[in-house]
Write a protein that binds this DNA or RNA. Structure first.
Length: 279
DNA sequence: CCTGCTACCTGATGGC
DNA sequence: TGCCATCAGGTAGCAG
């Protein structure tokens, strides 16, 4: 599911729902979701705490507590789900006809905030501070932050000999870009995905920077309208397909030149691009 | 140090 | 219909 825009949309939508609320009970229904941490650590760290802020860093979602913090990562399929109260949670979580898959649930003084990932890739962890989470500490420049400038991107590009596609997926350099938006950004910037990062010219870097920012911003607008609906586990980011120009369009005509979009494998993931106008 | 590959899980889809 | 292979928006960890 989520790259930077999706997680940002979740953070913004969640903030007014949970900010200032107290977590009075934490249920870990599938303890794989806290691995390798012990579920008791998450329970101990969260119960009784107030949620002071909701934040996004790269593709991580952070719940800042009065003391300590919780990091959530959705990986491919994770999502947040909302229940009216613990009664509804008890009735529907992983059971019944209108069952909803739930891994971890935080019962608040109003409502229940839950994390769900049927595939069990996603994680919910507790820390004293965000930087104690190795994944968060390792994040590079956030793609939607003020520090992400054309000059910064050019500097980062020059220090890597990897193919551009793999460079863009490396969260340690630029944080927040995933498989979909890397393809989209390269299509917009008209750059061939297999070109080595350090071989890009300065104007390529400028075009790429502009493409990354506009693709992510465009996607964020889509993700916010309509906004995420945590009450509906089937809810999905609507209308994203209509902004996609390369991803998932193998064989379809390029929207610029008409040549069929190609799909290749890079680092065991699919890359979609136009072999005529991306050079 | 850098890079490339696999494992981690479950579910949907398409070919036979 | 059923079975199997393949694919999926991410990343930690490990070998070379």
């Amino acid at each position: 599911m989520p790259e930077l825009p999706e997680v940002e949309a979740v953070a913004r939508t969640l903030r007014p729902l949970v900010e200032g609320r107290r977590i009075y009970r934490c249920h870990v229904l599938h303890s794989i979701a806290t691995k390798p941490q012990d579920p008791t650590r998450l329970r101990g760290a969260s119960e009784g705490q107030r949620i002071c802020d909701v934040e996004r860093r790269g593709k991580y979602l952070l719940l800042r507590l009065g003391r300590g913090c919780i990091t959530l990562h959705f990986k491919l399929d994770g999502q947040m789900v909302w229940f009216e109260d613990e009664k509804e949670l008890a009735r529907r979580a992983n059971r019944g006809d209108d069952r909803v898959h739930v891994d971890v649930a935080f019962a608040l003084d109003k409502g229940v905030l839950a994390f769900a990932d049927r595939r069990h890739f996603g994680r919910v962890w507790a820390w004293e501070k965000p930087e104690d989470c190795p994944g968060v500490a390792a994040l590079g420049t956030d793609a939607l932050s003020a520090e992400f400038t054309p000059a910064k991107l050019a500097e980062l590009l020059s220090s890597s000999r990897r193919p551009l596609k793999e460079f863009l997926l490396d969260q340690w350099r630029v944080a927040g870009i995933g498989n979909i938006y890397s393809c989209e950004a390269m299509w917009r910037a008209r750059i061939e995905p297999r070109r080595r990062a350090n071989r890009l010219r300065r104007r390529d870097a400028r075009r790429l920077h502009k493409a990354i920012v506009s693709v992510l911003q465009r996607a964020l607008e889509c993700c916010l309208d309509p906004a995420p609906d945590f009450r509906d586990p089937e809810w999905w980011y609507q209308g994203l397909e209509k902004i996609l120009r390369a991803y998932g369009r193998e064989g379809d005509p390029c929207r610029r030149c008409g040549k069929p979009i190609r799909r290749i494998s890079q680092g065991s993931r699919s890359t979609f691009f136009c072999a005529r106008c991306q050079t």
